[in-house]
Amino acid sequence: MFDFAAYAGLFSAAFVAATIFPMQSEAILVGLILTDRYSLAGLLLVASVGNTLGAAVNWFIGRGIEQFRDSRWFPVTQEKLDRAQVWYRKYGKWSLLLSWLPIGGDAVTVAAGVLKEPLPVFLILVFIGKGIRYLVLAAATISVV
């Protein structure tokens, strides 16, 4: 039986977790894996797509940063953004494979937008990086039980 609510909840958590707003999706994924009621491939796909699309929000913010930069709600400081841009200029699009990192990952995705990385390339590399992270988390979860 397909449980839309479980997959929608995982998608939502993964989406928000990838934006500049703080949230965790890993615990939800682990919990769903441990129930052994859901397709592992389905869970990994939903989490990876949700997290990638959430990161795309950061890319769009980066593209329009001039109008957002001075907003009170904008959580990426100028210092973090400057560091992310230096990192991005040094390592280029390949730094997007590390966009899942809890420190600096969001800033890299914003920097990719600021520096006008093409959206299709952005989406592919972010999906690969985030997908591998969820795959490793799933493998660790399965090996523990």
Rank of each mutant, 00 (worst) to 15 (best):
Q85T: 06
Q85F: 04
R63G: 09
I103V: 15
R72H: 11
A107P: 00
P102F: 05
V57K: 09
E117M: 15
V76Y: 02
I128W: 08
L97V: 12
R83C: 01
F127D: 00
A47V: 12
A55S: 15
A112I: 09
L81K: 09
R83Y: 02
L97P: 02
G105D: 01
K90M: 11
A47I: 10
A55T: 10
F68Y: 15
A112W: 02
I61H: 00
Y91K: 11
G92T: 07
G104K: 02
R89G: 13
E79F: 11
G64I: 02
T52D: 00
G104S: 02
D82W: 04
L96N: 12
F127M: 13
A47L: 08
I124D: 00
G92Y: 08
W59I: 08
K93L: 13
A56E: 03
G113M: 10
G50W: 12
W94E: 04
V86F: 06
N58W: 01
Q78W: 06
I103L: 13
W73K: 08
S99V: 04
V121Q: 12
E66P: 01
W100R: 06
G42T: 15
T109Y: 04
N51I: 09
A56N: 03
R63C: 07
R63E: 10
A111M: 11
D82P: 00
R72C: 02
G113C: 12
E117V: 15
K80L: 05
P120E: 10
V86M: 05
N51F: 05
A84M: 07
V110P: 12
Q78G: 10
L81Q: 14
G129Y: 09
L43D: 04
V76K: 02
V121I: 15
I103K: 03
V57G: 03
R83S: 13
L119W: 04
S48V: 09
T52A: 01
I103F: 12
L123I: 11
I124M: 14
L119R: 06
G54K: 10
I61F: 13
G92D: 09
Y91H: 15
I124N: 01
S48M: 14
V121W: 14
G113K: 08
G105E: 01
E117R: 02
L43G: 07
L45N: 01
W94V: 11
L96G: 07
I61C: 02
Y88K: 03
T109G: 12
L43F: 11
Y91M: 05
P75E: 05
Q67C: 03
F60K: 05
L81I: 06
W87E: 03
L97F: 14
G50Q: 08
L96Q: 09
L96M: 11
L98P: 02
A112T: 09
A111C: 14
T109A: 04
T109E: 02
S48A: 14
L123Y: 05
G129A: 09
L97I: 07
K93R: 14
G105I: 01
T77I: 07
G50H: 06
L53T: 05
K80G: 06
